[in-house]
């Protein structure tokens, strides 16, 4: 991967982007156990696969989602969070 498609700004070199880690659902802090919260804070799913990840386009300040195969380093698609149906 050398180029990445920002859903707003188009295809750009990777140097314009910052990786924001895997997209994860937050458990409800009011109802979850301490153990669940600690797992959310610290644990990650580290095995390879097609993952939903946060990426950030620096010059425009755009956060978006990339679905990427972390083994082949190939991006399947990118979209703004919550707008994946539109794509």
């Amino acid at each position: 991967m050398k180029l990445l498609q920002c859903p707003i700004n188009g295809i750009r070199p990777l140097s314009e982007f910052t990786y924001g880690g895997e997209y994860r659902d937050m458990p409800n802090p009011d109802t979850c156990s301490d153990k669940e919260w600690a797992a959310y804070v610290h644990y990650r799913h580290g095995a390879p696969g097609v993952k939903k990840e946060w990426w950030y386009h620096g010059p425009s300040g755009t956060w978006f989602i990339a679905e990427r195969d972390t083994m082949a380093d190939k991006v399947v698609r990118t979209y703004i969070a919550g707008q994946e149906e539109a794509k």
């Binding site: 910052t18 990840e53 083994m71 380093d73």
Partner: peptide
């Protein structure tokens, strides 16, 4: 700067 499971190296 980001997760990859391979041993490729880069010009960057």
């Amino acid at each position: 700067p980001y997760e990859v499971h391979s041993t490729r190296s880069s010009l960057d």
